[in-house]
Design a protein around this nucleic acid. Structure first.
Lengths: 300, 300
DNA sequence: CGGATTGATACTTAAGAGCTATGAACATCG
DNA sequence: CGATGTTCATAGCTCTTAAGTATCAATCCG
C-alpha cells in the first residue's frame, strides 16, 4: 500500500502527543482508525516507528528520524499550495517582454517599476527588438507581450494603444532655424534633408511624418534612413539633416541638437502593447492590469 | 478536502505525459478517475493547474510551478522511507557510550573503529567516566552502553564480559627487583608499599589484586590510592610504591617504570559492557553485534 | 461530412477509512 | 491483593470515495 500524507499527518500528531487517544482527538477522528493508520504506515515502511508498551508510547530511533522528515514533507506541501496560489495570481512565474527602443524613453520604465513592485518574484526577461520581429516572437511564444508600433494585423494577436504623442523637429544647433526665436513653421523645412526610420520597420511613424509634412504643403527629402532613434538624433547632431521624432525623445537631450514643436498641429504617433489573444498567463494578466488599469486586458 | 500524495503522483504523471489517457495507463488506473483526482486537486488548491483544450493538455504557470514542488515532495517521501529503514537497521541515529579510562587502552579503539565503518552515519557521543556513574547514567538514559568494571548488580541492566586479562607488576625503574633479571616472585613485594584503586570505584579490580597477593602469601601494604590508571603509573614512576595493574596498561610505556609478570598465576581482571535490559535502540544492537559477534547481544 | 481521438460525465462497484463496542494488559489505589 | 481506571488493540459494521465501465461531446483530420 502507498504512503499518503494522511499517514504523515497522523504520525506527527501521535509523535507529538505520544498518546493515541489525545492525538485522535486533535485529528478529530476516533482512536481505533488512528491506530490502524499508524500500523499501516509502519507496514508500508517495513519499520517500527513507535514502541507501544501498553501504557506508554515512545518513538523508536527510526520513528524520530522519520518524524523530522514527515514534518518537512508536510510543511513543504503547505508551501507548494501557497506557491501554486501565488503563481495563479501572477505573483511568481516568468514574463518575456519585447520592446522597441522608442519605448525605452517614456512608457517602459514606469510600467516595469510598478510591475516589479506588484510582483517582485516574477522573473522578467526583456528583449529589445523591432516591431515585426516581436510579432513573430509572440506567435512563436518567445515573448509574451511586446511594446510595438502599430499596426498589428494578425488575428491571433491583440493590440492596444498605451501611449500617444506628437512629433517635434530635431535640428542641428547651428541650423539657421535653430537660432531663430519664436515659433517654427514646418514648411520652412521643405528644402531640408530629412532623416527617417525605414518604413517597413515602423510604417505608422513613417506615415505620420510624411503626412505631417504633406499637410504643411511639402514632401520631405529623405537623405538618410536609420533604425535606432539614437542614431537618428546622432545624425542630426552631425548635421546630416533634420528629423521629426516623437516628443518624448527630447529627453535624450543630445548636445548640438535643438528640439522645436512646429506651429502646425502634429498628428499623433503611438506605441502600444501586443499579446496573444488566447494567452492565459497569470503574469501577463498582472502586466496588462497595470498597463491598462481601467479596462480589462483581454478586451482589444 | 485534503491533498494527498496520490494527487501529486497523478498530477506529475499527467504533467509529464500531457495526456490523460497515457498518464492513466502509466499509473495503472483508468482515465476517468484520473480526471476526477486532478480536478479534486485543483479544487483543493483553488488553482487551475492544467489547461485542457479538448485536444491538447498544457500546464498553466501555476501548474509548472506546482509540478516542481510536487516532484520534490515525492522524492522527499522516498528519501524519508529510506531514512527510516536505515535508522531501523541502526545505520543512522545516535549512541551515547560511556567508558572507564582503562578501556581506552585496548578494547575501546578497535571496537569504535569497526562501528564507525559499519555505521558511519551514527553519531557517537563518548563519555569517560567511572563504573558507578555509568550505571546511574544508564538508568537515567544519559548513556546507552558503558564499558564498566564488574560487578553490575542492577536487574534493569545487562552486563557481559568483553575482555579479560592478567595483572602485572609495575615497578619504579630503580627498584631492586626491576633491575634483577629473570622471573619475579610476587611474594618478593610483600614489604613494598602498594598503590591501588579505591575499592568502591572498582571492587573487582581491587579484590583481584588483594586475592593475588594473599595467594602469594601476604597482604599488600596500601600506601596510596589513586583513581586514574595513569595516576597510579605516575606514582610508581615517582617511586611512591609498586602496583598491580591490568596487563594491557603496559602500553602506557611510561619512562621510569618497569612492568613484570610474576611467576605466580595471576587472577583475571575483566572489563565488560553494560546496557539497559529492555533497550531496543537499533544503534545499540549494531554496537553489541560488533562487540559480541557470535552470541546475540540481548542474552546476558 | 464521417471517423478517430480525447477529455468529461453518469452510473456502478468495491476498497478502505472511520465509527461503536469491546477486549487485554498494565498501573494505581484502597 | 483484588478493584478500578487507563490505554492501545481488535472486531464488526457503516459509509465515504476511489476506481471501473459505458457513453457523451468536442475537436481534429482526411
Amino acid at each position: 500500500m502507498n504512503i499518503e500524507l494522511r499517514h504523515l499527518r497522523y504520525f506527527v500528531a501521535v509523535a507529538e502527543e505520544l498518546h493515541f487517544g489525545r492525538a485522535a482527538q486533535r485529528l478529530h477522528i476516533s482512536q481505533p482508525p488512528l491506530s490502524m493508520q499508524i500500523r499501516a504506515l509502519e507496514e508500508s515502511l517495513g519499520v517500527q516507528l513507535l514502541e507501544r508498551t501498553q501504557r506508554r508510547v515512545a518513538l523508536t530511533q527510526a520513528g524520530s528520524a522519520f518524524l523530522g522528515e514527515a514534518r518537512q514533507i508536510l510543511a513543504r506541501t503547505e508551501q507548494a499550495t501557497l506557491l501554486a496560489r501565488r503563481a495563479s495570481r501572477g505573483e511568481v512565474g516568468n514574463l518575456a517582454v519585447g520592446f522597441v527602443s522608442t519605448a525605452d524613453y517614456n512608457v517602459l520604465p514606469p510600467l516595469l517599476r510598478e510591475f516589479r513592485q506588484r510582483a517582485p518574484a516574477v522573473h522578467l526577461a526583456l528583449h529589445e527588438s523591432t516591431t515585426d520581429r516581436q510579432l513573430a516572437d509572440l506567435i512563436d511564444g518567445r515573448i509574451d507581450v511586446g511594446f510595438v508600433l502599430p499596426p498589428v494585423e494578425d488575428a491571433r494577436l491583440v493590440y492596444r494603444t498605451i501611449h500617444r504623442e506628437t512629433l517635434v523637429v530635431a535640428l542641428p544647433a547651428r541650423h539657421p532655424l535653430a537660432r531663430q526665436r519664436g515659433k517654427l513653421r514646418l514648411a520652412a523645412l521643405a528644402e531640408s534633408p530629412f532623416i527617417l526610420f525605414p518604413r517597413p520597420l515602423a510604417p505608422s511613424l513613417y506615415d505620420a511624418v510624411v503626412s505631417y509634412c504633406s499637410s504643411a504643403g511639402f514632401s520631405p527629402h529623405i537623405e538618410q534612413e536609420a533604425v535606432q532613434m539614437q542614431t537618428i538624433v546622432s545624425l542630426v547632431s552631425a548635421e546630416i539633416g533634420v528629423a521629426l521624432i516623437p516628443a518624448s525623445l527630447r529627453h535624450l537631450g543630445r548636445t548640438g541638437v535643438v528640439y522645436k514643436a512646429p506651429v502646425e498641429r502634429s498628428p499623433f504617433t503611438e506605441i502600444g502593447l501586443a499579446w496573444r489573444r488566447d494567452d492565459a498567463l497569470a503574469t501577463l494578466k498582472v502586466f496588462l492590469e497595470i498597463a491598462f488599469p481601467a479596462g480589462h486586458g483581454a478586451a482589444a
